[in-house]
Write a protein that binds this DNA or RNA. Structure first.
Lengths: 230, 230
DNA sequence: TAGATTGTTAATCGATTAACAATC
DNA sequence: TAGATTGTTAATCGATTAACAATC
């Protein structure tokens, strides 16, 4: 629709590919950490748990960063993927809902190393506000707007009980947050232009249970065994 | 391949549909809780955050549980979906790795009500073994086999650091667990016939960051705004 | 019967895969 | 040059969607 610079052309990366780029990034980091400088698509694919055809197809959407007959320079490809995802910079995030899960998220050490920075922990419960969690003092939910403006937060994490999730999302959206990661077991509705991703423990377990039940029933185990595998 | 009873015929539910059945189940439970006895595909679809065509197509794989001109009986459909997923019975699960996340998972109250029962918490760290978490005493990882046999556990949850994940998965598979939910930020390889699902905080955040970056760049916001939405 | 809503069809869209020409 | 491996093509597969006949 809008005009684009020529260097930026042809940048329509399929959603399925976008979802795998972080996996490749992590696999490349692991390879680099073990001292490997160059890898083939086969090597990287196996480290990422996909087949090499899919990997090469995915990378082809980013550009031509490999060398035929040789493979990929690990550091170079890693940087290109990080740049494409947008994690060469740090993204400020807020976590709302500091119960057991919020606590665990706040303590998650992988944030900083993967392009994210927790700028605030918020909770509506006065009994939790003021406590120190992961070295940060929990602030009242009503401070959300101030914090978002101050740190230019674009990504919010919801770790509240289900009943509160929609209200929190509404407040986030009203204040200008356009990406939400929702851990609450509830569907949240947002206007167009806002991305919501959902992480749901019991849904994942139920998907496993479905396949497990079919295995137990002994029906066609051979054809459906790996149906839900990541 | 194998012969099936006639009542069991035509049971090939697409993976994308399987992944949505738990969402429908939850939406139906919410409707039932608010006293609604009957709903249309439009009602249920909107509660589940999908469009009604997709919902009806999904339900059609299970059978004909609605009434034309009327809609669906909430309780009846809920039971049918629960039966299809396999959560009319309780599934025993073990959680391995009782750090911050394992702690949060152990305390998650949605387990029991959604068809799962945590039969043991395990950790390899002697400093954690013996502590009481969520009313359960943490046991040594080496007790895994005994516990799995005793409770006939089919589903294992990995909440360890990344380095330990593959070892834990290998032990689980060796002992006969055939479904694994992996929260560790690592790819785990398993033999055919074992299902692994992966939940990864930083991957979800990175997918959001990708879309966020594109919004910020102002490129075609209108066409890709909702690209990664759940 | 008239109105409402399901279940199904068929078209479209997007993702995966294997094969191989290009090329280091 | 010969061997290796990428990047791309084209075929296949699976998922989504709109439309509507069936039917309560």
């Amino acid at each position: 629709m809008t005009t684009r610079s020529s260097t930026d052309a042809a940048r329509v990366i399929p959603e399925a590919t976008v979802a795998r780029l972080p996996v490749y990034l992590r696999a490349l980091t692991a390879l680099a950490d073990s001292g490997i400088r160059t890898c083939s698509s086969e090597d990287l694919a196996s480290a990422a748990g996909v087949n090499s055809a899919k990997l090469r197809k995915d990378l082809s959407y980013l550009g031509s960063y490999g060398t035929r007959g040789v493979g990929y320079d690990v550091d170079y490809l890693r940087y290109q993927i990080a740049r494409e995802i947008g994690v060469t910079q740090d993204w400020p995030v807020v976590i709302v809902g500091i119960g057991n899960l919020g606590h665990a998220l706040a303590n998650y050490s992988g944030f900083r190393s993967r392009g994210f920075r927790v700028v605030a922990l918020l909770d509506a419960d006065p009994g939790i506000v003021g406590r120190e969690v992961a070295g940060v003092v929990v602030r009242p939910f009503d401070d959300l707007e101030e914090i978002v403006r101050e740190h230019d937060v674009a990504i919010g994490v919801i770790a509240t009980p289900a009943v509160a999730a929609q209200d929190v999302a509404d407040r986030m959206v009203a204040i200008g947050i356009t990406s939400i990661l929702n851990f609450a077991p509830a569907v949240v509705a947002v206007p167009e232009g806002v991305d919501v991703r959902k992480v749901d423990l019991s849904i994942e377990l139920q998907i496993l249970a479905y396949h497990e039940q079919r295995k137990a029933n002994g029906a066609d185990a051979s054809t459906e065994a790996d149906g839900g595998a990541a």
